[in-house]
């Protein structure tokens, strides 16, 4: 993922990001990977052994993006894991399935982690032009 594929924007209280991808699948992968980097404060590494699969459905691209990120957040919060190596398996107009690997969020990783409470609907958008897809998301922190 290139730096410009997940770019933090200035927001007074929360975290706003712009995400890019040449395809919508790539945008989703970049969004998931970028959000995990925001949480851990770095590109977290670990022995990612467990392979997980997620399926989300929603009524538009922006909602699919929000749903996917929210599902990952829930997993991180309840299973105490770091998720990585996201790969979109299948993608449709109203659904997406992705596979990824996880490894435990160690004490050391938790120490410098940022808590993302939720993926908000505020200013949520996914646009498409000849260069690909671009999305904006505000996280509540």
């Amino acid at each position: 993922m290139r730096m410009e594929d997940f770019e933090e924007l200035d927001h007074t209280a929360d975290i706003a990001v712009r995400i890019r991808g040449t395809t919508f699948a790539e945008l989703l992968q970049n969004a998931a990977q970028g959000m995990m980097a925001l949480i851990t404060g770095r590109m977290a590494t670990g022995s990612a052994t467990e392979i997980r699969r997620l399926e989300v459905s929603a009524s538009g691209r922006d909602e699919i993006l929000r749903e996917l990120l929210s599902e990952i957040l829930y997993l991180v919060a309840t299973q105490r894991v770091i998720a990585t190596e996201f790969m979109v398996e299948e993608i449709g107009e109203q659904c997406v399935s992705a596979v990824f690997r996880t490894f435990p969020m160690t004490e050391a990783l938790a120490h410098d982690a940022t808590e993302i409470k939720a993926v908000t609907w505020h200013g949520l958008r996914v646009d498409h032009d000849e260069s690909g897809y671009v999305a904006e998301v505000v996280f509540d922190t």
Partner: peptide, 9 residues
């Protein structure tokens, strides 16, 4: 007051 999401803080 500052920029929130939906409602202002």
């Amino acid at each position: 007051i500052h920029w929130g999401y939906g409602f202002p803080i």
